[in-house]
Simulated scan of single mutants.
Amino acid sequence: MQKLFTVFSILILMLAVSTSSIAQTIFTEDFESGSAHPDWEAFFPNEEIVTAVSMATPPDSLASGGDYVGWLQDLDTSYTGVAVSINGETSLYDYSVEADVYCYVNHPDGSAYTGVVVYADSSIGTYIKMAADFDPVPYPRIRLYNNHFDLGTFTYTFEHSFTESDIPGGIPTENGWHNLKIEVRTINADITAFWCYWDGVELLGCPVTDTSSHRMSSGQFGLFSFSQGTGEGIPGYYDNLVVESLISSVEDNSNGTLPEEFALEQNYPNPFNPSTQISYKISTGNHVSLAIHDLLGREIKTLVSGFQSAGNYSVTWNGKDELGNTVPSGVYLYSLHSGGFVISKKMMLMK
């Protein structure tokens, strides 16, 4: 029964994604300034952070690149050849990460994987990566897995392998640049789902779901490099990184699942400065939450949190956060939660 429920949940999610998702770019990185974005940080303490290097540094240049690329490597092998750089907030959820990544095929010095990272949180020691693992042993594949290795079963607590038959065009035979993309969505309290893409084409077997004990429901995005046997890690090269929010908006929800009298109006005025009014309607009494987030998923201000009877409501936001500080100009999301339903819309503060 649980398996049937899970499959049904995924089917519903797939339908919702096709009708309701809005891709909103929240981060880009092409290293063309000659340096990496200052918000990059190391997942492991005192480890390397992605940096910009000349396009002449990788073994092959990227045709769609510029003068610089990102470089990441565990030079001192203090983490057994693993290097992970992360960015964004740990509260970020439902997003995609896409990047051009230099991939190694059957590296002569040992295992050599590169890829992208989602739902990372260094405070609890967990991250999930999509990595090109083209070693001949046990077999070449694209892997989606976390970093929790179970010595009892000799497997990761969450892992999925896309084999040659799952990869359009098959396994590459030479080192080179490829486009990797992963979409991650938190379905409910028990399931996180992933869609993986290779050179712009979805891999067979998606979505892949994680229901393990180490399942993540939110987290930072990032880059991954790993080498075992080379003595100093492997240089990972990355370019054209794009992170997009996949949060749905009610004006694009056409599947009729929202109750008729559950509504969130567009704020007015919009754009606004310094304050705006948000109106909403609930059909039955319930606990109601109305909160504002920035595009990285960080909560800015909770406007409503508590039980409310059925009716029409209106609240004003003065453009300030929980500490009373005025927030900068930009696009913000406001989300209404009530009785298991969620509606989100966008608004713009313009000074």
Rank of each mutant, 00 (worst) to 15 (best):
A112K: 06
D210P: 08
F272A: 04
G330D: 06
D133I: 06
A99W: 01
S161A: 15
N46S: 08
S54I: 01
F5Q: 10
L295D: 03
F224Q: 01
H337L: 13
D39H: 05
M348G: 05
I12E: 03
N240V: 01
Y313C: 07
L92G: 04
S275E: 15
V82P: 07
T209D: 08
S18G: 10
F31C: 02
D252I: 00
D100R: 02
L295M: 14
V50D: 06
Y113D: 13
S165H: 11
V288Y: 10
S85W: 04
M130S: 10
N312Y: 11
G65Y: 00
H107M: 00
H107T: 00
D39C: 00
E29S: 06
M348V: 14
S96E: 12
P269K: 04
Q277C: 05
T19E: 12
I247T: 14
R143L: 06
L295Y: 02
V242D: 02
I10L: 15
I86E: 10
A291E: 08
P235R: 01
V69M: 06
Y197G: 03
E41M: 06
L258E: 05
E261T: 14
A189K: 12
S165K: 15
S123Y: 09
P108R: 02
S283A: 15
T276A: 05
Y102N: 02
L323R: 13
W198K: 01
S213W: 12
P168T: 14
N87L: 04
F272N: 06
Y119V: 11
D109L: 12
E183N: 12
F158I: 07
G231V: 06
L92S: 07
S20A: 15
F262A: 08
H148L: 08
Y119C: 10
S248C: 05
I171E: 02
L258F: 11
G169E: 06
V116C: 10
T211F: 06
S35R: 05
G66S: 02
W71T: 00
S309K: 13
T192S: 12
I49E: 07
V242S: 03
S165M: 12
Y332V: 13
F307Q: 14
R185K: 12
N286R: 11
N255R: 14
L323G: 11
T90Y: 09
L62Q: 02
N87T: 01
F162I: 08
Y127L: 12
N179H: 03
I300G: 09
